[in-house]
Amino acid sequence: MTMDTAFDQGAPTRPAPATRAQFLASDDKAMLRAARDLTKGLGTARGAYYWPDMLLSVLVGYGAMAGAILVESVPMAVVLGLVSSLALYRALMFIHELTHIHRDALPGFRTAWNLLVGIPLLTPSFMYEGVHTLHHKRTQYGTVEDPEYLPLALMKPWSLPLFVLIALLAPVGFLLRYAVLVPLGVIIPPVRKLVWERASALMINPEFRRKPAEGDFRRRVMWQEFGGFIWAWTLLASTQFVGWRPLLIGMAIVSFTAVLNQLRTLVAHLWENEGEPMTVTAQFLDSVNVPPPGLAAEIWAPVGLRYHALHHLMPSMPYHDLPEAHRRLRSELGELSTYDGANHPGMAVLVARIAQSTMKRRAAD
């Protein structure tokens, strides 16, 4: 299928971009070929981008958190807490990059990220590695075997606010997991199995069950879980010396980060698939780009996540090359192409679209 056959050229008005339904059976081969050919020269993860970006985010995030804990002014503490949350959110989103770049691409980056971000925020990289890649599998995307997919647009209206607000409890859940369930699992194997299958992945599909870790990955899991266990109890023990205020402020900051990430997740896809396998093009059109000129998306979808649909076309493309890849494809394929069908103006429009879909579903029921 070519770009010209994807639209009604004889229509008197400007045609709309292609929809996901048009490509459930076959791919837009012209777009896929363009994605391959137009991005030559891109795709190499460069430490000159990753290291300064991650380290600066960490420095600002923890520095602002310390300020929020130490200052006496409540308004200033709130401002510093917000800055901390946004900076740590950006640092945390590098977990997405770690699942896609080759493990030898950036020597030391994975370990440094886990020590500086993953373990301190109780979300080490094993909670995404080996799980997120299932979301990109051609035959698993949007099915019950996809850990990161729920047909939210086809669910009840109350499911959307519940989906977002449940993220408020993330810090409590992580603390409970590492401080209590990890050591308990060492003593009671069935607990360990349950925790691994249902509470060891950053997933949204409650039906997903994680398979056992094997080989070198299993060894990485063990040291990351041990680090999380030590850090969780360090946080709890600190309350005996400095009180609960620092921990509660830190947890509030992480809660806001979790909610922001859940909002981003809510608009990362259109969530219109009912469980059937989809073509790559249909998966792309069920995903979302929020490209420039808007600046807000760079805050709520950092580290390349504003190009989430493009990422589904080229999962191994590093975040710093996605803007250029988008520019080339958009310039070559044009406004009325299939590619343009995944480009959306912002979060508010996307939330309204999904909410409207749930209301229509309710009316139909």
Rank of each mutant, 00 (worst) to 15 (best):
K193G: 00
R198S: 13
R218F: 06
V195M: 12
G228D: 03
V191T: 06
L235S: 05
I188L: 12
R192C: 00
I187G: 02
T239G: 09
F217C: 04
L235H: 05
F217A: 13
E197I: 05
F241H: 13
L235I: 11
A199G: 04
V180C: 09
V180P: 01
D216C: 00
V182N: 05
V182I: 14
L202Q: 09
V191W: 02
R198F: 14
W231T: 14
F226T: 14
R220Y: 09
F226N: 11
Q240I: 00
R219W: 03
L181W: 09
E214G: 14
L194P: 02
R218P: 01
F217P: 01
G227I: 08
M203G: 02
G227N: 11
L194Q: 08
Q224D: 08
N205V: 12
Q240R: 09
E197Y: 04
D216G: 05
V195Q: 12
E225L: 13
R198P: 06
P189S: 04
G228N: 03
A201M: 06
L181C: 06
K193L: 10
L194R: 07
I204A: 08
S200G: 12
P183Y: 05
V180Y: 05
E197F: 05
G227Y: 04
I230A: 15
G228V: 00
I187T: 10
P212R: 10
K211H: 12
L181S: 01
G185M: 06
W233Y: 05
L202P: 01
D216T: 12
G215F: 06
A213V: 04
A213R: 07
G227D: 09
F226W: 14
R209F: 10
W223R: 11
F208G: 01
L236D: 02
R192F: 00
G228H: 01
R192P: 00
K193E: 14
G228Y: 01
E197C: 09
K211F: 07
G228E: 02
A232K: 02
L184N: 11
M222S: 09
V221Q: 03
I188T: 07
K211P: 02
I204D: 00
P212H: 09
V182M: 11
I204V: 14
L181M: 13
F208T: 01
F241G: 04
L184A: 15
R219A: 13
G227T: 11
G227W: 03
R209M: 13
W233Q: 02
F217R: 14
R209N: 11
V180E: 01
E207L: 12
I188A: 11
T239H: 09
L181T: 03
V182K: 07
F226M: 14
L184G: 15
R218M: 10
P189T: 05
R209V: 12
E225R: 14
L235V: 10
